[in-house]
C-alpha cells in the first residue's frame, strides 16, 4: 500500500511527458522549442521553494538547536541546487534556440545566476568549518540573510532595471500568456508532479540523515 502513490506518480509523470510532446506546442509563435516550458518552469519553481524551505529550517534550527533541523536545511539546499542547475541549463538551451545565444543577462537569468551563487557560497561556508554545531549555526544565519535578498532579486531588480534586450517581452508573454485549457492542464500537472517528486526526495534524504545521526549517537 505504501508504494501505491509512487506507482501513481510514475504513471502521472509518464503520461505528462507523453502529452507534453503529442499536443500542440504551447506557444505557437515560438514553435516546438516552447515545449521546454513544461519542464523549465517547474524546475525553477522547485528551486525557489527549496530555497525557502532551507531558510525556514535554518530559522527553526536557530530556535531549537536541534541538529536534525540543520540536516533538513542542508538537504533542501542540496536538492534546490540540483534543480537550480537543471533550470539554468534548460533555460539556457531555450535562450539559444529562441534568442540565438546561451546567455543574455536578462533580469531572470541574472536572478537565477545569483541563486546559484548563493547556494554555492552556502556550501563553501559549510565546508570551511569542522565543528558541527558552529557550522550549523553560522550556515543557518547565512541562509536566512541570503533568503532576505531574494525578494529584492526577484521582484525589485527586474522592475527598476530596464530589460537588457528587446526580445525580453517573449519571456513575459510566456509567463502569463493565455494558456489553452489543454496547455494549462499539462502545465499544472507537471508543476504538481515535480513538487511531489521534490517532497519525496526531500523525505528520503531526511530519513537518511536521521539514520546517520542515530547511528552516530549509538556508537558514541
Amino acid at each position: 500500500m505504501r508504494s501505491a502513490w509512487q506507482w501513481i506518480l510514475a504513471l502521472a509523470m509518464s503520461t505528462m511527458i507523453v502529452f507534453s510532446f503529442i499536443t500542440d506546442a504551447p506557444q505557437q509563435n515560438i514553435g516546438e522549442s516552447s515545449r521546454i516550458f513544461y519542464y523549465h518552469i517547474p524546475q525553477a519553481w522547485i528551486c525557489v521553494i527549496a530555497f525557502i524551505i532551507s531558510a525556514i529550517y535554518s530559522a527553526k534550527f536557530l530556535k531549537s538547536k536541534n541538529l536534525l533541523d540543520d540536516d533538513r536545511a542542508v538537504n533542501a539546499a542540496r536538492l534546490g541546487f540540483m534543480f537550480c542547475i537543471l533550470a539554468t541549463v534548460t533555460g539556457s538551451i531555450f535562450a539559444k534556440v529562441t534568442w540565438g545565444s546561451f546567455w543574455n543577462w536578462d533580469p531572470r537569468e541574472t536572478s537565477i545566476f545569483i541563486l546559484l551563487l548563493i547556494y554555492a557560497a552556502y556550501f563553501a561556508l559549510r565546508g570551511a568549518m569542522d565543528e558541527e554545531h558552529k557550522r550549523a549555526q553560522l550556515a543557518s544565519v547565512y541562509s536566512i540573510m541570503a533568503s532576505i535578498t531574494v525578494p529584492f532579486l526577484v521582484f525589485v531588480v527586474p522592475r527598476i532595471t530596464p530589460s537588457l534586450h528587446p526580445e525580453d517581452s517573449i519571456i513575459d508573454e510566456n509567463m502569463k500568456f493565455t494558456m489553452s485549457p489543454e496547455v494549462r492542464m499539462i502545465f499544472f500537472s507537471s508543476l504538481i508532479i515535480f513538487t511531489v517528486i521534490f517532497i519525496w526526495m526531500f523525505k528520503l534524504d531526511n530519513r537518511i540523515s536521521f539514520l546517520e545521526r542515530f547511528q552516530k549517537e549509538k556508537e558514541a
Binding site: T110, I114, A121, M145, T149, F152, L153, V157
Partner: peptide, 16 residues
C-alpha cells in the same frame, strides 16, 4: 570566503 559569501548578497545592490 568573505568575498565569496558577500558577492551573491551584494550583486543586486551593485547592479543598482
Amino acid at each position: 570566503l568573505f568575498a565569496i559569501l558577500s558577492f551573491p548578497i551584494m550583486l543586486p545592490l551593485l547592479l543598482v
